[in-house]
Write a protein that binds this DNA or RNA. Sequence first.
DNA 1: AATATTGTGTGTATTTATTACACAGTAACA
DNA 2: TGTTACTGTGTAATAAATACACACAATATT
Lengths: 244, 244
Amino acid sequence: MEKILNNISVDCVIFGYADDSLYVMLTRRELMDAKTGQPLFTDYTVQGHHILTGENVDDAARRVLKEKTGLDNIYLKQFHAFGDISRIQHTNDQLWLKTTYPDVSDYVLTVGYYSLVDKTKVNPDEAHSFSSWFPVAELPELGYDHREIIDKALEALQSAVLKEPVAFELLPEKFTLLQVQRLYEAILGVNLDRRNFRKKINQMKYVIPLDEKQNGVPHTPAQYFIFSWDVYHKTKKEKYNISF
Amino acid sequence: MEKILNNISVDCVIFGYADDSLYVMLTRRELMDAKTGQPLFTDYTVQGHHILTGENVDDAARRVLKEKTGLDNIYLKQFHAFGDISRIQHTNDQLWLKTTYPDVSDYVLTVGYYSLVDKTKVNPDEAHSFSSWFPVAELPELGYDHREIIDKALEALQSAVLKEPVAFELLPEKFTLLQVQRLYEAILGVNLDRRNFRKKINQMKYVIPLDEKQNGVPHTPAQYFIFSWDVYHKTKKEKYNISF
DNA sequence: AATATTGTGTGTATTTATTACACAGTAACA
DNA sequence: TGTTACTGTGTAATAAATACACACAATATT
C-alpha cells in the first residue's frame, strides 16, 4: 500500500522552450473562503508532490514530471534540497496546507529538480488543468519558497549548459546552428555573436553536419546537424582550468 | 523538546588538508555479536545525523561539522540529496540500524554536504573517538551508500574550486603561491605546471602580494599574498563560455 | 668551509581561444 | 520586383594556454 511521506517532497521546475524563449510551468493555487466563496488569495507554485513509501526520490521527480507533462525519458536533474523550517510558514502557505492537506507535517524538506522540455510537445490536455506557462522573466506571485527554488534551478541550468552539452537534449534530432544559438540565448538570457558561436560549435567534433538542408523556409536553407553522445564521450578530456 | 526526524538526515563529507594531501574524516562502525563478543563487521561511514525538529537542514549540517571537528564558520556546501530506497538496505546496514537505532525509519533521505578544513586545526580530542582521517585515494570499506556520497562530494569540490575561489578559504590569511598550487593539486589530483600556475594566480587582482616574505625556511623565502573577497566581488564578471 | 637540499623567481615561443565586426546570397512571399 | 529573414563566410587583434630551463637564496649537513 503506497502512502505519502508527509515530510519529504520533490519539486520540479519544468522549463519549457518555444518561440526562442524560456518558460516555467506553474500551477495556480487559489484558496476560497468557505463562507463567502471569495478567493482569499491566488498565487502559483511549481509542480511538486510528496514522495511515496517505497519510492526513490528520483522516481518521485520523474512521476511528477510525467503527470504534468506526459513526458518520459526527459532530462531531469536534481539541483538542491530545500530544508529551512521557514519555507512553508507564511500565512498563505499555512492556510492552504491546513485546509487542503491537513495531514502534511509542519516541516517539509523538498528536493528540487529541473527539467528542460519542448514546450510545444507538452499537450495542454495532459497538463494539469490549473497549470500554465510563464516566461522566466515575468513570474507571477509564488507560494512557499518557490521563487528561491526557481532562481536556483535557473542558475543550475545555466551552469549546466555551459559545462555539458545538455542543451542538445532538447533540440530535435536534426537541428540548425541557429536553433542551437537561440536555445543558448534563451537559457542564458544574453545575446551571442552569431559568427563566433558558429565557430565554437563547428569545432565540436560531436556536432556533425548532415548532407541535408532545410526545406520550405523563406531564406537560404540552413544545413542540418546531429549531436553524437557517442563521439562526445569518446573524445572528451578532463579540463583543469581555473576560471573565476 | 527536540526530537530527531527519523527519515531525514544530513551527511558531512569532511575533507581535511595537510601535508599537501587531501583526507576524508570517517567514523568506524563496528557491530559486536551479543553472544560471542566478536565483531560481526567493521566498516566506516562519513559523519551524519538525523535532523532535529525545528532545525534547518543547513543548521543540522553545521551542527554535525561542529561536533566532529570543533570548527565553526567553515566552508560547508550542500551538494546532493540521496534518496534511493536501497541506500540503507544492505545486510550490515540493516543489522546496525536494528541493533543501534531501532527507531530509525526504513527509508532515510540524506542531504549531503562537504566541507574543507585544515586538518591540522582539528583537535583530535574534539573529534569523535572513533573518527579518523583517510587519504581520499585509499578509502576503507564504507557503509550505506557512503562510497557514492564521497565520490560525488569530491566531484562537487573539484568543480567548485575551478569555478570559484573557495580553495582560498582553507589557506592561512597569508600564503605563498606554492601553497595555493599544492592545495589545488591535492584537490584535483593532478600536477600543475608551476610557472603557468603562478602566471594564472598573478593575473588575479584579488590575490594581493604583501611586502612580507617567509622567514626561517631553508630556501629562498617566498613572498606572501592575501586573498581579497572584496576585490573579487567588485571585479568579477559573468562569463558565458561554453566549454565541454 | 664546502656542498646538498629545497623551493623561489623569472620569460619566451607556440598554439589555441576569444572577441569584434560586414557583406553577398538565397528562398519564400507579397 | 522588392521585402523579409536568415545563411554562410574571414580576418585582425587580443588574450589565454601550454611547454619548457636556469640562476639564486636560505638552511642543513658534512
